[in-house]
Write a protein that binds this DNA or RNA. Sequence first.
DNA 1: CAGATCATGTAACTGGTTACATGATTCA
DNA 2: TGAATCATGTAACCAGTTACATGATCTG
Lengths: 186, 186
Amino acid sequence: MSIAFAILAFLIHGPLSGYDLKKRFAECESLHWTGNNNQVYRTLVHLHETGLVAREDQQSREGPARKLYSITPAGEDALRSWLQEEPDLPDCRDSFLVRLMAADLLAPGELDRLIAAYEEQLRMKLIMLEEKQRRGGRPEYGSPLQRELWRLINDHPAAVLRAERDWLLTVQWAVQRQRAGARENP
Amino acid sequence: MSIAFAILAFLIHGPLSGYDLKKRFAECESLHWTGNNNQVYRTLVHLHETGLVAREDQQSREGPARKLYSITPAGEDALRSWLQEEPDLPDCRDSFLVRLMAADLLAPGELDRLIAAYEEQLRMKLIMLEEKQRRGGRPEYGSPLQRELWRLINDHPAAVLRAERDWLLTVQWAVQRQRAGARENP
DNA sequence: CAGATCATGTAACTGGTTACATGATTCA
DNA sequence: TGAATCATGTAACCAGTTACATGATCTG
């Protein structure tokens, strides 16, 4: 998948500028894109060239000139037919697994510190996400069902991190069990 | 993070060829790399240039000529100091979220089909992972603790998918609840 | 001897990030 | 007037994939 379908999805509830889209990506924790200029503006040019979005230049209004993009019927068709393809599985990249692969390189205390540091990272991010969730401020568009789905989309990152935290607990238990075993059978 | 540290981690329990490493990446579900040639061989050249691995050419043995790579003390140091950096959070890319963003484009039946299709994808992959786990065949190297950690590393993808399945259930409930509400207050 | 596997490499491309560059408008 | 924000774009790079290319060796 590329960012193109995400942009089209943002546009189904009304026109937006590149700058608007960029901000949406930057604010949205559940979408992995950072919303960097290069990708957003280039993709918009490409979507415009292929007729999936329409562009309207707004020269003189309040504020600097901007280009408003809206989805075209062809764009809606493209998005709809993508929705009817087989959904692909989530792709989770976890560098902590690579660190665990090299556990034999660490002294016991260092391994404990690594695990504790990761636990702390997870804890902090979860607090941040819950805080963000609590402060709300999601003025999402679309039908009541769509708004409810947005709530669940925004919940997703925390669900993933909680699963990671639970898995990390099993790692901690395994390390302790292994050490207890080693003390009994030296 | 790049694939370089994963290669170094594979090498701490003994020398391997590019081909060996490629296979390890291809077989390992928990590491997101496909083990494509370009990346593995180029990274090995780079690691060799920077002195983090040593290369031994094996011209005439049984089998075709191959290059055996082993980690150097400098490589171990590099890996160890990376292990002591702040571990970064997992990066989960889930195109299903983007599909849900566009739910308003779908008829109720189509949304149900999308959710069911994703559920089925998750179910199939989980069965595949459990089967792979059951068949075992993990001749992993290192200390008993390291082998135990490998078991947990290999468990990780299934843990993520189970969390995804649980989250998807909440999506299903929300859709049904929303529709029931809409029927009561039309 | 044909097809699978072992083994190494390159070319072309997609996807994504950081940093650079520019200029208008708003507000303290 | 200077900093923040709005707004659009480009250059250079890193990460990762598919497909192409070659040749040796093993196995039925």
